[in-house]
């Protein structure tokens, strides 16, 4: 394990805690800048859509939120898996810190999708594969949070949550590929790795800037929450006592 020392330097809460603060401030600032620029592009530069008129402008938050809902889940499962494999304290804390933000973006994706579906498709909700699997993702997040809340011992809560998070990973490719694998009311992907985007350039740029804005927001919010969890769980340790004293 000696070769891994550098890599694991920040895997102890004591050294990660002050770093997380700097990162949270930095990414929080970036998030504000990117969201402001993204919204400006989305509302004032991107043209009206030929089919949907102005209602398509929901895309600038719907797609970033939906991507974040899946991406945060993958990161959460990654940390959960690390926690099971290496039994590091920080891994479980990171997984717990990610879940509420992931659940929030899943809800936003469903909410904005519903408000977008009504005027375009003609319905708030349908049980097609894309919408159903995204709803299952929300339940996975809720299940993870409920399971962790139900177990008093944090390390046991981490392990139980990790198992749930890892099993639930199968749902993420199902969401992503649902529009290819099954007949759905939801249209296919406008942006994918395998083919050219089917969006006008300004619309695409606005959406991608918002993706980065949401991404940076998530990093900042998750790090803030991770700092809280670190202090709560390790409040009796020497390093935490020092920060609790100074309030830094």
């Amino acid at each position: 394990m000696s070769s891994g020392i550098n890599w694991f330097k920040f895997s102890s809460p004591a050294s990660f805690y002050p770093l997380a603060k700097k990162l949270a401030v930095g990414f929080g600032t970036l998030a504000v800048v990117f969201c402001a620029v993204g919204l400006y592009i989305g509302f004032f530069m991107a043209p009206t859509d030929h089919q949907q008129g102005e209602s398509y402008r929901i895309i600038f938050i719907h797609v970033p939120a939906a991507w974040m809902s899946m991406f945060i889940y993958l990161v959460m499962a990654f940390w959960a898996g690390m926690g099971l494999a290496f039994n590091t304290r920080l891994s479980g804390m990171m997984a717990s810190a990610l879940a509420p933000t992931g659940a929030m973006f899943t809800f936003i994706a469903l909410w904005t999708g519903s408000l977008w579906g009504k005027p375009t498709w003609g319905t708030w909700w349908v049980w097609d594969a894309r919408l159903t699997s995204e709803l299952i993702l929300l339940f996975l997040y809720f299940g993870f949070l409920a399971l962790q809340a139900a177990i008093d011992d944090p390390r046991r809560a981490d392990r139980a949550g990790a198992v749930l998070a890892l099993v639930g990973v199968v749902n993420v490719p199902i969401i992503y590929f649902s529009v290819k694998w099954w007949n759905t009311l939801h249209q296919g992907a406008s942006v994918s790795l395998s083919s050219a985007p089917t969006m006008a350039t300004t619309m695409l740029i606005g959406m991608l800037v918002m993706v980065f804005g949401f991404w940076f927001y998530s990093i900042a919010a998750v790090l803030m929450r991770a700092r809280c969890i670190m202090l709560e769980r390790e409040r009796n340790s020497e390093w935490a006592a020092q920060y609790l004293e100074s309030g830094a």
Partner: peptide, 8 residues
């Protein structure tokens, strides 16, 4: 059911 093309 609309398609995934967005353009002016």
């Amino acid at each position: 059911k609309h398609d995934e093309n967005y353009m002016p």
